Simulated assay, not measured.
Amino acid sequence: MKIAIIGTGWGARVQVPAFRSAGLKIVGIAAQNYEKTQREAATLNVEAFEHWRDLLSSDADLISIVTPPGTHCEISVAALEAGKHVLCEKPTALNVLEAQTMLEAAQAHPEQLSLIDHELRFLPIFQMARALINDGAIGQIRHVNSSVIFSSRADPQRPWNWWSDKEQAGGAWGAIGSHQIDMLRWLCGDFSSIRASLHTFVTERPLDDQLLPVTSDDFATAQVRLANGGFASIMISGVAALNENDRMIIHGEHGAIKIEGARLWHAERDGEWQERTPAHTVAIPSEISGNFPVGTVYLGHALKAYSRGQLDALEQAATFSDGLLTQSLLDAAHRSDENDGGWITI
């Protein structure tokens, strides 16, 4: 499978080496700044394209869209109409209306892949956790706690960019909350309602010689009612004093599962935690570390297997249908925050 990447951030830094390690060919890269694209392309030994639309006429089989959310709808629809498979970064879009448009384009081209890049689904620790839950190891889920705590946006001198702009779907809730929502749905089932509080601690950031207002959140907390009767709590902070391991603890009637960093534990009720971290099933390059980059390696192997005819290799992938559901929950949380944290029925 030949892949073209739109974006010189995560796409160049992580996807290129991860996908290459899985045996995929990168045939081109494009981004907004052509000079930067040329520099990145030279470093990566890949062809630079001046505009993302130029990639649609290349020999790429799949277009990976690693751009700000406000561009996802236009690029995804155009790529599908050009006959390309699509892998789109999260959050899916600016809003539910755009996510619905993307899904309709995908449904009009059912022979093509239309995936959202929730690569954590492919990590062995999360697949093992899902298997334990589905096999009844913890019984019916009662409550879940999921937290992502990091410090990268705590510095007020970090420059303003689209991440600082709510109108461009910036903020911690969209960037990180989309992953937490997707993983909670994948492991624990659908949501019935949600309430949230979104906050901005760093209210201004510099750009060139001026300070611009930050309108997006850098802290978010949400409570979720699960369709099966359980509850989940989500916390995200991008302005912590220091980084913590990402953590998810799922309590059921018979036991619990804990995922912290890259490790997995299981405990029976009133028992001790027993580590259940599975071994890697593919080679991970030494320069690639962290759940998201490693998950991208696994996603690359799944794409490779799919291209060789193993059609079930991507059965665990998040589709545009999943993307629409996640987007509806992201939007619902914003409505809840605007209404003093009231419950929003899904």
Rank of each mutant, 00 (worst) to 15 (best):
R158I: 14
R142G: 13
N228P: 09
S216D: 01
S147Q: 15
F150D: 12
D208C: 01
R142L: 12
R153N: 11
V214N: 05
D218N: 15
R225G: 10
G170V: 10
A227T: 13
G230D: 01
S147N: 11
Q210H: 06
I141H: 01
F150S: 14
K166R: 07
S164P: 02
N161A: 09
D208M: 03
A227E: 15
A175R: 12
A169D: 08
R158W: 08
S216R: 03
P156Q: 03
T221R: 08
P213R: 04
T221W: 07
I176F: 12
R185F: 09
S152T: 14
G238F: 07
E204Q: 05
A169H: 13
L212Y: 03
W173Y: 14
I181T: 06
W163G: 04
S147V: 13
T215G: 00
G177P: 12
A172K: 13
V214C: 04
R185P: 06
N161I: 02
L184M: 15
I181C: 03
H199K: 15
S178G: 10
A227F: 00
Q223H: 14
V144S: 04
A154I: 07
W173N: 01
W173T: 12
D190R: 14
L184W: 06
T215S: 12
P206Q: 05
V214D: 04
W186H: 09
S147D: 12
I176C: 11
I176H: 13
N161T: 03
E167P: 04
H179G: 07
S237A: 11
D208S: 00
S237P: 05
D155Q: 02
W162Y: 11
A222L: 08
T215Y: 00
N228S: 15
I236R: 11
L198D: 05
D165G: 03
S147I: 11
T221A: 13
M235N: 12
S192V: 13
S216V: 04
W173D: 12
R185D: 12
F231I: 10
L187E: 05
F219I: 11
V224Q: 08
T200S: 02
A172Y: 03
S178D: 09
R205N: 03
A220N: 08
R142D: 08
F191T: 13
R142N: 09
F231G: 05
D208R: 01
L212P: 00
W160G: 01
S164E: 03
A175V: 13
A196V: 11
A222D: 04
E204Y: 01
A196I: 05
F231N: 13
S233A: 14
A196S: 14
R205V: 00
D165K: 03
P213E: 05
F191K: 13
V239D: 04
W163Q: 07
R158G: 06
V202N: 02
T200W: 07
S237M: 08
G170M: 05
V214P: 08
G170C: 10
S237L: 06
S197V: 04
T221H: 03
